[in-house]
Every structure is written in C-alpha cells, then in structure tokens.
Write a protein that binds this DNA or RNA. Structure first.
Lengths: 157, 157
DNA sequence: ATAATGTCTATTGGACCAGTCAGGTATCCA
DNA sequence: TGGATACCTGACTGGTCCAATAGACATTAT
C-alpha cells in the first residue's frame, strides 16, 4: 500500500510550485525546489520532466528559467498524478478501473478477497480523485497562516 | 498502493482454510490448497510457515497432515495479516500508526500532502481492520450459494 | 562570452519480489 | 521397520524496480 518516493516527490513538487505561484512567484527553478524539499536535484529532474511531458508543468530554459504549472491547480486531480507516476491505485489488478487485469484466482466472480479489495480501491480513489492540487495548496497555506509560520518561496534566492 | 503476491496468497490461503473448516474439513494439506489457487507449492510453503509462526495457523506433519486455523476466524483481522506479510498500511511512513517514521519534508506539521495521505491511511485501515476472516468467508460462501456454485474443498482429494 | 538554467540518455547499486532448489524432519500406514 | 506423505528449513537466483548519479547538450539573460 505504498506511495513511492517518486510519487511523493512529484506531488510535493506540484504543491510547492503551486504555492509559489499563489504567492506571486511566476516561475520556480529546480534548484530552489530541490533544496527546500531536500530532494536530490538530478532525481527531481527526471520527475519534473515526466510531469512536463504529461502536461502538468511547463518549463523555461536558461537563466531565470524554471518550472510553472501549465494548468489551473483546480483541474489537477491528485489521483491522476499518482496514477501517472506510480501506476494504478488498486491494490490488486483485478479491481483496477483504469488498468484491469484478470487475477489468477479460480473464481473471480465469487472471490471475497476481491470484493474487499474493491472496497479498498474505491476508498482510495474516492479520496485521491476528489482532491485537487488547489485543495491541498489551500489547506497547506491555511495551516501555515493559522500557526503564524512564514510560507516558503516568498523571495527568489 | 500495492498488495504483494505474498500478501494476496496469504489471505487466499487463510480464506480457503477457513472455508474448508466451515465445510467440515478439519485439516487441509498444502498441495490441495496450492492446486486450487494455482500457487507454486514451495512459495506457498514459506507463506504458510510465516502464518504458522505468527499464530494464525497450526500444522500437522506426516501422512494426513496439513494446516488448520489456530484462532477463530472472527478474531483474525485482515488488516493485521496484511501488516504481517506486507508491512504498514500507510502509503507513507509519516502517517503510519503502527510504524511511524518521520518523513524528509521540511515541515511535517504543515504538510498538506501528509494530511491527505493520513486520510488515505485511515480509509484503508478502516476497511481492513473492520473486516475479519469470518466476514470474508461468509461473503464468499453466500455468493457461491446464491449462484448455485459448488464450494471447493468439500471432499479430500 | 559566460554563467545559469533546463533537457536528455545512460548507468548503477541495492533492495525486494516471486519463485526455485536441495535437502531435513516428523508422522502415519502397511 | 520401511516407505510414503507432508511439513520445515535455509540457501539462492533471475528479474524488476527504486532511488540516485553522471555527463553531455541546448537555451536564455546579462
């Protein structure tokens, strides 16, 4: 039931870029992002590249380059990002909606385990597909403000 | 968000042994189980051994040997079996109740991602910890009967 | 020009998964 | 008592994936 580091970093990156954008930073260089989240730069590169290819980010090269969101945060579903980076949400393939594959069990139609795992898949999907990047960003900023903590990415370094 | 084959086989084995027991078979040899579920015998052996050590099963050696449940199915929570075989239910360690570990993010207390993943963990745990082996067995048998399908393990082979 | 940034491809070390192999030991039946 | 059946134990292997690293190349601002 694991979210990979890759998936975790992808989400953290999108959230950070979204926060930066919300706070007036139009573009965020990868170095700043990597430092803030303590992610190895070259590993993060690959992930941002993937998010770029998938249409979530756009990049500007050269000096003062960096990444920004290509779509409004409200239209980015967390579940879709996880699916992109980590694969299907379902714990076993025979209950996946987006990547169904038959399982090896003798009678899929009368498999109590399958029904249970379908519940689990639906519970996960319900949460991750109902939450957007916008929502996560709002929650994060609200919590920061409530505790009087200065948000990150206010100033270019 | 994956259940490993090992975890899947462990659950299927417990369910099958429970079904057999419900239907009057006091003990189930591994060969019959492996054949029915199409699991490599030697792989299944390791898994049943682990379930034995963990107190879920007891075994009888020699001719007419096999495995049976050591506890009543009602007292076996699916979530605990998954934890035993596959590790924590939480998608990331910083939201695990049974195996918490701090994450690398700069501010765990104001991490929107963490709050979201905590929701996911709780949703998974709610399902897997509320369902017992008894429940899964009942559902399976009910579905089989509803469709008039003969349940497995009625006769020793 | 050059320094700062992103792009792209290749590779690596290690962990883990799923399974295999080669026996050893206990139990039962004839 | 001997053999068949079945569980017990440990080593090990091929493959895949994760996380990270390395280095050459392209683009942009100053």
């Amino acid at each position: 039931m694991n979210l990979s580091k890759r998936g975790e970093y992808a989400l953290r990156a999108l959230i950070d870029i979204g926060i930066a954008q919300e706070l007036g930073r139009e573009i965020l260089p990868i170095g700043e992002l990597a430092e803030h989240e303590r992610i190895p730069v070259k590993f993060l590169e690959q992930i941002l590249l993937q998010l770029n290819e998938a249409g979530y980010l756009e990049s500007r090269r050269g000096k003062h380059g960096g990444y920004r969101l290509r779509k409004p945060p409200r239209s980015i579903r967390i579940g879709d990002v996880v699916r992109l980076v980590d694969g299907p949400l379902a714990p076993i393939a025979c209950v996946s909606k987006t990547a169904y594959a038959p399982c090896s069990c003798p009678d899929e139609d009368h498999c109590g385990l399958r029904m249970l795992m379908l519940d689990v898949r639906n519970a996960i999907a319900k949460i991750l597909d109902r939450h957007t990047l916008q929502g996560v960003i709002e929650v994060t900023l609200r919590e920061l403000r409530r505790d009087g903590v200065k948000p990150p990415f206010l100033e270019p370094t």
